[in-house]
Design a protein around this nucleic acid. Sequence first.
DNA 1: TTGTAGGCGTTATCAA
DNA 2: TTGATAACGCCTACAA
Lengths: 338, 338
Amino acid sequence: MSTPPIIPTLEDVAKEAGVSTATVSRCLNNKANVSMATQRRVMAAAEALKYTPNFNARAMVAKRSNTVGAIIPTMENAIFAQGLQAFQETLHNLNYNLLVSSSAYQPKLEAEQIRELVARGADGLLLIGYERDDSVYEFLKSRGVPAMVAWASLPYKGHASVGFDNRSSMRMLADHVISMGHKRVGVISGITDGNDRAKERLNGIRDSWRAHSLNINDLHVIQTPYQFENGATAFETLMVANQKPTVVMCGNDVLAAGAISKARELGLNIPNDVSVTGFDDIELARYVFPALTTVHVPHRSMGRIAAQNLVDLIEHRTENFSHQLDVSIVMRDTLRRI
Amino acid sequence: MSTPPIIPTLEDVAKEAGVSTATVSRCLNNKANVSMATQRRVMAAAEALKYTPNFNARAMVAKRSNTVGAIIPTMENAIFAQGLQAFQETLHNLNYNLLVSSSAYQPKLEAEQIRELVARGADGLLLIGYERDDSVYEFLKSRGVPAMVAWASLPYKGHASVGFDNRSSMRMLADHVISMGHKRVGVISGITDGNDRAKERLNGIRDSWRAHSLNINDLHVIQTPYQFENGATAFETLMVANQKPTVVMCGNDVLAAGAISKARELGLNIPNDVSVTGFDDIELARYVFPALTTVHVPHRSMGRIAAQNLVDLIEHRTENFSHQLDVSIVMRDTLRRI
DNA sequence: TTGTAGGCGTTATCAA
DNA sequence: TTGATAACGCCTACAA
C-alpha cells in the first residue's frame, strides 16, 4: 500500500559520496583529518539524501547521548515550569538535550521513569527533592549516571544538589506572621509523605510555633495534594471550624490561590477577615487578587545552576556539588497585622 | 579513582542463568516457547544482576521504541499542561512512553526537535497546530513517522488532527460581545506569524466585525507573545489611547490575566469600566478576579483522543484521522452589557 | 588523508 | 524448548 520508508544510513551517504563510512562519520562529527574537498562532497551527499544520524546506534557505541532527563512531580501547574525552562535553555547552550517525564508525585512511577531514562542512555538526571528509596540512588551510582537534586531542602549529603532551605524559609515566614499578632493559624500543607519539601515547610511552621511557646493546638493542619481545588476545599474546612484561624498559611502558591478563591466565594475579605500566605512565588502569586504574600524562590537561577553543574558532573569537571540559594519573603496584600 | 560502572547485559544474565542470550531475550519479552523452569531461572538472574535492557540496542534492531515525542510551544504557562497530562496518561495506559520538548514558539527550533525525536526513534509525534514548513511534513512522511496535529484549527488536510475551530469559536465569542452592545473593541492577540491558532482567533473577531458591518477602524489590535506581562502592557497601551475600548478581547487566558491585573493597577474596574475576555479556559480563568469570561476548550479530551489515535496510527490500525471538538463560551464575570 | 574491520546490546531467523 | 548467528547503524582503533 504505502511504500515502506527508506531511511538513509551512513553507508548510503558513503556510497553517494564515493568514500568509506569512516570518512563520513569523521565529517559529520567534524573531526580533523579530512580534506576540504571530501568534506564538501560528503556534506552534499548527506544533504541530498536528507540523512540524519541514527541516535540509538550512535549512543550505543559512543556510550554517551548528550541527553539529560528530568523527572518532575507534575506539569499540571506551573510550580516547576520556570525552573525547568531555565534548565532546558542552559542545557541547550551546553549542547545537551532534555527529555522530560512527569511522575505525578508517585515515587513508584518516578523510580520507573528513572530506570527508563537511564536505559535510554541519559547522561545525567535532574531529580526534584531528596526523598527517595536508597535503591534508586544505588542504581544510579552503579550505572555511573550522575543526578542533580534540585529544589533540595538540604545541602550536600552524598549527592549533588541545588536548592534552598525549605524549613528555615517557611520558619522565617511563620515568624513574621506571628510577629504580626497572629495566634490562631490554619495550615494547608501539601502531602508530606514522600515529599521532603512539603515536610520541611510544615516543620518550619512548627519550629516557629515552638520557638514562640505557642499552643500547638492552635495550629490546625490539613494535608492535601497541591491543587487549586484542594486549596479551596481545605480553606473552607478551616473556616467553618469552631476556632477560626486569623491566618491560613499554605504549602505553596497553588493551594493559596485556591484558598483566596474560596474566600471570595464565602464572602470573606482578604486580608481583613483572614490573612493568607503562599510559597514559591510563581507567576500566579502576582495576578491573584489580592496579590499573594509569599516566599520568593529563585526558580530560574536554580534551573541554570542545576544544568551547568549537572553537565560539569557528566563531563567529570567536578566531583560533587551542592548549592543553597537564598529566598526572601515577598510582602504583598494578603497578610495583615491584627 | 571511582570504579567504572559495570552495566549488566543480556549476556551477563544469560551466563548467570546458564542459558543463551536468545532465551533471555524471549523471557524478558514474555514470548511463548519458554519452559516455566528456565523462565524462573532467568528472571532470578536478571533480578540478581539488576539488569535493565539497553533501550538503544533494542530500538535499533526492533525498529520501534514504544515512545512518542511531543513538542509543545511552551512549558512556561499552563496552556498545554492539562492536555499534555491527559495525553501522557493515555499513552501510559497504551504502554507507550512520552518524551517532551519545548520549542519556545520557534519554528526553527521545532524543526530541529522533530528531527531529534525522530532520530531518537520516536514511533510517532504530537505536534501543536498545523502551520509549519512543508519540508517538515515531507521529512516525517519519508521516515514513516506518523504525526498527530493537536490544537488544530482545521479538520483533515492530509495529516491526522484533533482540535477545534479556533476561528468560529472566537467569532462566536465576538458575536456575543457585539450583541452586548460593544462597538469599540481592543484586541490583544498572540503573535500570528507562524501560529495558526492565533491567526484563526484573530480572524474570527474580524469575521464577526464584518458580519455586523462595523467600522474596522474601531478594532484596535495589538500582537504580543503569550505572556502575562505582555497582556498587562498591551492593556495599558489600549487604555491610554484616544478611543478607549469598552471591551478588550484577548487571544488567550494568560494575556487576559495580565490585562485584568493591569486594570486593577490602573484603578479600572472590570467589568464596569471595561470588559475583558479570554480563550482556552485554563485553570487560572477561575481564580483570577473577577473570574474570566472565556472560551472553554476540552483540553483533556483532546489529549486523550490525540494519544489514542496516534497509537492507532502507529500500529496501523487506522490510516488517518481527524476530529473536531466542540467548544463553548463560559460566561463568568469580566464581560458585561453596555 | 582515507579505508578496513570489529564491536556496542539487542532481536529474530533458523537449526537443532 | 533452546541455541548459534546474523543483522541493526554507528564509531574508532589500526592499517594503508
